[in-house]
Design a protein around this nucleic acid. Structure first.
Lengths: 245, 245
DNA sequence: AGGCGAGACTTGTTCGGACAAGCTGGAGAC
DNA sequence: GTCTCCAGCTTGTCCGAACAAGTCTCGCCT
C-alpha cells in the first residue's frame, strides 16, 4: 500500500494527464492542495517534489508552481528490463543468446564489478528483438555469484531481470548509465542487419544490489532509429552529466 | 548563502570524495549526523536526499545507508553551456556561427516552441570546438522574442547562454533532452571532419524559462568519441526513459 | 501612463515529535 | 553448526508550527 504522498503524486499526474492542469498553467497552492487532500503541507510538498524531479512541474520560491509538460516517467524496472518496457507499450520483446562463456575479467570489468584481480566473469552476448526485428545487441558481464543463475536460464529467456528475481531473488536496485554513439563493427552490423560503420547508440551500464554490490556490467548497442532516451533537468536538479570520451 | 541542508550535502560529498566514507561502506545514521551537525533529523534527511537522487548514496528503509560511488554531478548550467562545461575541465571551447537566418517554423518547431502557426524562428547553425578540434554541430531554433538578442551576438560568441543572460536577462531554467544516434550527413561530416555515414551522438532538447516558456529547440550532434552522457537511477528514482524511435 | 513600493501570497527551510515499517544481529533452540 | 525469532536499530511518513525568502499585484505618486 503506497504512502499517502505517493498517492497524491499519482493523482496529480492523472490530473495533469487529463488536462485539469494544462501545460503552461499553474498548480493549486500548497495550502489548497493540503486542504483538498486533507493532509499537511509537508505531505503535499513531498508529493509535488516527485513531479518536480520528473520535470513535469516547475517550482520556484514565491511563485506559483507551473505545469511544464505531461511526459510520463518510467520505473526503474521498466527501463532496466527490455521485455518489461516492450510489454508496457504493447510490443513483443524477444531475446536470443548468441554466445555465452566464462573467461577472466578484463581490467575494466574488474573495476566495474568490484572483483578481485584474476576473477572470472560470465560473458553473455544476446540479440534482443522488438516485434520480430533485431534492435539491440547486449553484452553482459556477470560476476560468478550471478553467473551460476544466468547459466541456468534458457537461451531464449524473455526477461533475464524477472528470471533472476524469481530464481534467486536478485533485486536490481541501482544503475549507472553512460551513453554515446559508436560505429557498428562487423559482428554488430551482421546481428542487427545494418551496414558496417553505421551509427549505433551505445549504453554502458552497471547495475547493483540494494547494498551496492555490482550484478552486471553491460554494453548495449541499439540500432539507429529504434530507440531514444529522454531526460529532464532543471536548475534545481540535473541528473544528466556530460563527460569527455 | 546556501541553506543549511545544502551545506551539509556538500560536506557529505566532500567526505565521500576524500574517502572518509568509502564506496561500499555505510554512512553514519541520521541521528548521528543530526548530532554532529547540530541540526534536526529532517534537515539531515533533506541533505542526504540530494546525494541519493544523484546516485551517490543508496537508501532503504530499516537498513544503513550505503555509499554507491563518488561520481560528481554537474549543475544544470554546466550541462547547458558547452563553454562552461569545457571551462570546468580546464579546456577551451570555441563557437562559430556557420549560418543564421529567420524562416517560418516547421511543424515540430511550432510544437516544441509553443508558437502560433505561421510564426517565424531564427535558425542558427554553429560548430563548437574543444581545444581547437570541432566536436559538436549545434542547430538552434529560437522564437522571435529570443531571436533579436541572439542576432546581436558576435558570430564567434563563446557562450551564448552567458550572453543571453547578461544582455537580456534570459534564464535557462528547465530542459528536456532526447538522446539517440544518427548517421552523419554531408554537411555534418564536413563540419566535423569525419566521413559521411559515420555515427553521431544526437541530443534534441528544449530549454524553457522559469515560467515554462520555451527559449530554444536544439539539435546537437557530437562527433563520436568526443563526449558521453551519464545518468544514475534507482528503484526509488529513475530520471531516464526509453522511447521507441 | 508608468514606475515604485508595500503588502499579501506563495514556496522554502527548519524544527521536534510520534509512529510506521523494514532490516539486522544476536541469542536460543534443535 | 544451523536456523528461526525477536528486539533493537534505522529509515520512512506524517504532523503542525514558525519563520525566511522570493514573487506578484495593487495602489499611490509623479
Amino acid at each position: 500500500m503506497a504512502a499517502r504522498h505517493e498517492e497524491i503524486a499519482e493523482e496529480l499526474r492523472r490530473a495533469i494527464d487529463r488536462g485539469e492542469y494544462p501545460v503552461g498553467g499553474t498548480l493549486p497552492t500548497e495550502s489548497d492542495l493540503a486542504a483538498r487532500y486533507e493532509v499537511s503541507r509537508g505531505t503535499v510538498r513531498q508529493a509535488v517534489a516527485a513531479l518536480t524531479s520528473e520535470g513535469r512541474i516547475g517550482s520556484r520560491q514565491g511563485a506559483r508552481r507551473v505545469v511544464l509538460g505531461n511526459r510520463r516517467s518510467q520505473s526503474f524496472a521498466e527501463l532496466r528490463s527490455f521485455a518489461q518496457w516492450a510489454g508496457a507499450m504493447g510490443r513483443t520483446a524477444t531475446g536470443q543468446v548468441i554466445e555465452q562463456f566464462r573467461r577472466p575479467a578484463s581490467d575494466e570489468e574488474v573495476e566495474r564489478l568490484q572483483l578481485a584481480a584474476g576473477a572470472e566473469v560470465l560473458q553473455v552476448l544476446r540479440v534482443r528483438g522488438l516485434d520480430g526485428e533485431p534492435v539491440l545487441v547486449e553484452r553482459n558481464a556477470y560476476p560468478i555469484w550471478v553467473a551460476e543463475a544466468v547459466e541456468r536460464l534458457p537461451a531464449d529467456c524473455e526477461s533475464v531481470v524477472q528470471a533472476l528475481y524469481d530464481d534467486v531473488g536478485i533485486i536490481f536496485a541501482y544503475g549507472e548509465h553512460t551513453i554515446d554513439a559508436v560505429a557498428a563493427g562487423t559482428q554488430d552490423a551482421e546481428l542487427l542487419g545494418i551496414r558496417r560503420g553505421g551509427p549505433l547508440l551505445r549504453i554502458r551500464r552497471t547495475t547493483t544490489t540494494h547494498a551496492g554490490r555490482p550484478i552486471e556490467w553491460s554494453d548495449d548497442r541499439y540500432r539507429p532509429g529504434s530507440v531514444s532516451f529522454a531526460v529532464a533537468n532543471s536548475i534545481g536538479s540535473n541528473p544528466l552529466a556530460r563527460h569527455v570520451g
